[in-house]
Amino acid sequence: MAAAAAAGAGPEMVRGQVFDVGPRYTNLSYIGEGAYGMVCSAYDNVNKVRVAIKKISPFEHQTYCQRTLREIKILLRFRHENIIGINDIIRAPTIEQMKDVYIVQDLMETDLYKLLKTQHLSNDHICYFLYQILRGLKYIHSANVLHRDLKPSNLLLNTTCDLKICDFGLARVADPDHDHTGFLTEYVATRWYRAPEIMLNSKGYTKSIDIWSVGCILAEMLSNRPIFPGKHYLDQLNHILGILGSPSQEDLNCIINLKARNYLLSLPHKNKVPWNRLFPNADSKALDLLDKMLTFNPHKRIEVEQALAHPYLEQYYDPSDEPIAEAPFKFDMELDDLPKEKLKELIFEETARFQPGYRS
């Protein structure tokens, strides 16, 4: 834990890192770190609560700039109880001085990944967590956004079992017609939660990839272990087919990539493993919904509104309290091709509203 900075004593240090967030945020305490930044909790002297502050230093890398800009653009436009918001952003007053960006968010005690390492969940908890994931996802999908990296560590939890989806750095506007060349190379989302079509096709992607990830998360809540822990690309596919069985001819016809289709045709026939054999203690309604989410063919996979209306979630289902976005989200430009200098300018502009004396 960093010592509390005395008023006016300059930035606090946390594990050798400068955290320049005073005077409003003090009493910093280390939480963890990701690929390009550290997260601390801090005391907000204005709202009198502890908050989470993520320090991001992305400006050396085009990919990190892209992810940072995506996350900020999306989260500043989203407003939903099951999606983490941005409360404040701290950065230098000029673009030349801006080396880091500090993002202030609600402090959540833990995440689903940490929880599943230590606790076996009751059916009631599984049901409530799944409902909140789908409630947040309904809003995301209504904005025409794909999260693309749903996994237990991106689901934040607090002691009252509130759940918030975080990390929109890989999110995209849904565009089933656009052929994202190089899709697989830039697709760094965790393999275990990846839909089979991501490994088999490169053309376009749809909201059904997020539903697949939610199915993987439900299976993990039922058993405290990942359902498809593939060691590499082909191993991942083999794990999936080992449980779902061989795809039907109709399902194979959806695979545009001939090499991928021929690979699947070359494999020995596998039978589907019954879900109640894998999860003998699970609620039968939970397994019915799991089956509809972990469907090989993305066109037959359940959609988020149908999933919310499934009998497993009937005690929570309330369409009048499951809000959607006001308007579909649009990125003005494809960020993939922009140089990091341009992305830095866009991050600077996007964060201006939090600067003292800002006038829109």
Rank of each mutant, 00 (worst) to 15 (best):
N253K: 03
L121R: 08
I227M: 12
K151M: 01
G37T: 02
N144H: 10
E350Q: 13
W212N: 02
K285W: 11
T118M: 10
Y139G: 08
G215K: 01
A7P: 13
S246Q: 12
F329M: 10
E109F: 11
I72C: 14
L264T: 09
M221D: 02
Q17Y: 13
I165H: 08
H61N: 05
I95R: 13
P152K: 03
F168K: 05
T63H: 05
G169Y: 09
A4N: 15
L335A: 08
C65L: 05
N87G: 13
S246P: 15
Q66I: 15
R359S: 00
L287K: 12
G230L: 09
K203I: 00
D20H: 07
S248F: 04
L265R: 12
R194N: 05
F59T: 15
A35N: 03
I243D: 07
L146H: 08
K340T: 15
D291G: 09
E33Y: 14
D336G: 07
R67F: 12
G182T: 04
A189C: 09
L75W: 11
D88E: 01
C254N: 10
L130T: 13
A143C: 09
H147G: 02
A307R: 05
R261S: 03
H232F: 13
N297F: 07
L222K: 07
Y193W: 07
L137Q: 00
S29P: 06
R301M: 06
L294S: 03
H269M: 09
L338Q: 00
I133V: 09
A174C: 11
P268Q: 12
T26Y: 11
R277C: 09
S29N: 05
D251M: 07
A4T: 05
N201K: 00
A3G: 15
F59C: 08
Y36T: 12
T26D: 11
L264I: 10
E305C: 15
H269S: 13
E60Q: 10
G230S: 02
S142W: 13
Y64N: 00
F168Y: 02
A7T: 08
D210S: 05
V51M: 12
H239P: 02
A174V: 00
H239N: 00
Q249K: 00
K292R: 02
L146M: 07
I133A: 12
F354M: 03
D336T: 04
K73L: 01
D162K: 15
H232M: 08
G215N: 02
A52R: 02
G245S: 02
A219W: 01
Q105H: 01
I243Q: 10
I103F: 01
G8C: 12
D149R: 02
I324Q: 13
S202N: 03
E326M: 12
M108V: 10
S29C: 01
L264E: 07
D149Y: 00
E345D: 00
P23K: 15
G32N: 13
Q236C: 05
A171I: 08
L244P: 02
E109P: 14
L346K: 10
E109Y: 11
K330Q: 08
A5D: 08
E314P: 15
I89R: 10
D235K: 04
P328A: 07
S142A: 12
I256N: 02
Q249M: 10
N144P: 09
Y30A: 12
C161K: 05
H310M: 10
N158I: 00
T26H: 07
A307M: 10
M199H: 01
P268Y: 09
L252W: 12
R353P: 12
C216N: 04
D235Y: 00
E334D: 00
E12K: 01
M108I: 00
R301P: 03
M108T: 07
E12S: 04
I165D: 03
Y317N: 01
E349I: 15
F129C: 13
H125T: 05
N87T: 15
S223P: 01
N27W: 11
I95M: 11
E33A: 10
N123K: 00
L237G: 02
G215V: 00
N47R: 04
V49L: 04
V39C: 12
L289N: 05
V49H: 11
F331W: 15
V51K: 12
V46S: 12
A282K: 14
Y102H: 06
T190D: 03
L241D: 06
P176V: 06
A4H: 14
A309D: 08
V101G: 04
L265N: 11
I324C: 13
S41P: 15
M38L: 00
N87K: 00
S142P: 07
Y193R: 01
S213P: 05
N158E: 05
D251I: 10
F129I: 00
G169M: 06
S202Q: 02
F19V: 01
G16W: 15
F354Q: 06
E350S: 15
M199F: 03
D44Q: 11
R191Y: 05
H269A: 14
R261D: 02
E305P: 15
A171P: 03
D162M: 14
H141G: 09
K270T: 12
L265Y: 11
D149A: 00
L157W: 10
A352I: 13
V304F: 03
Y139V: 07
G242L: 09
F354D: 03
M13K: 00
L237E: 02
T63F: 06
L294M: 03
L170W: 06
L75T: 15
I243E: 05
P11S: 04
I95C: 13
E33W: 15
R50S: 00
K48R: 04
N297I: 00
D124E: 01
Y64T: 09
L267V: 11
A6M: 07
V51A: 14
C40M: 14
Y193K: 02
C127T: 13
G357W: 14
N154T: 01
G136S: 12
L146W: 15
Y128L: 02
P226N: 13
Y36C: 04
L69V: 08
A9E: 12
I83L: 08
I165A: 06
G10E: 06
S320W: 12
K285E: 03
K55Q: 06
L146T: 08
A327H: 15
G357Q: 08
N45T: 06
N297Y: 00
S208M: 10
A307P: 03
P319Q: 00
Y312G: 04
K342A: 12
I89D: 08
N224G: 08
L170P: 04
H80Y: 09
Y113C: 05
S284P: 13
D179W: 10
D149H: 04
L264R: 07
M293L: 01
F129H: 08
H147P: 04
T160D: 12
F354T: 11
F183W: 11
A219K: 01
I74P: 04
G357N: 15
N47P: 12
I209Q: 01
K54A: 03
C65D: 06
L112E: 07
L28F: 04
E81F: 11
A307N: 10
L150R: 05
Y36S: 10
Q132G: 08
S223F: 09
A195V: 02
E303M: 13
A327D: 02
D332M: 09
Y233E: 03
K300M: 00
D167T: 04
E60D: 00
K285R: 04
Y139H: 11
L264V: 13
L170Q: 02
N224S: 02
L116P: 05
R135N: 15
A2Y: 13
A6S: 04
Y187E: 04
A195C: 04
V51Q: 13
L218D: 02
I255Y: 05
H61S: 08
S142G: 13
Q66H: 00
K203R: 03
A52W: 03
T206K: 03
K272Y: 10
K54Q: 04
E96G: 14
Y358A: 10
E322T: 15
S153Q: 09
E197K: 00
N27F: 13
L69G: 13
M199V: 10
T190A: 02
L75S: 08
L200F: 10
K285F: 10
E314N: 15
G182F: 05
S248R: 10
V214T: 09
S202K: 06
F279E: 05
S202P: 11
D177W: 09
A352S: 03
I86H: 11
I256T: 10
I133R: 03
P311L: 02
N82M: 11
S142L: 05
T110K: 05
W192F: 02
Y317D: 12
L107G: 06
A352Y: 15
G34P: 03
S153N: 04
L157S: 07
Q236N: 06
D235N: 01
Q236M: 05
L134Y: 06
L156N: 05
L121A: 10
L28R: 08
Q119A: 07
H61R: 07
S213T: 09
Y233T: 01
Y102I: 06
Y43S: 09
L258G: 10
P23F: 15
N257H: 08
E220T: 03
L134S: 01
R50F: 13
D111L: 05
L170T: 07
D179H: 06
S248K: 11
G22C: 10
L155W: 08
D179Q: 07
C40E: 12
L278S: 10
L163G: 12
A2G: 04
E349L: 14
R194E: 01
H80E: 14
M221Q: 06
S320R: 13
A2S: 06
E96T: 15
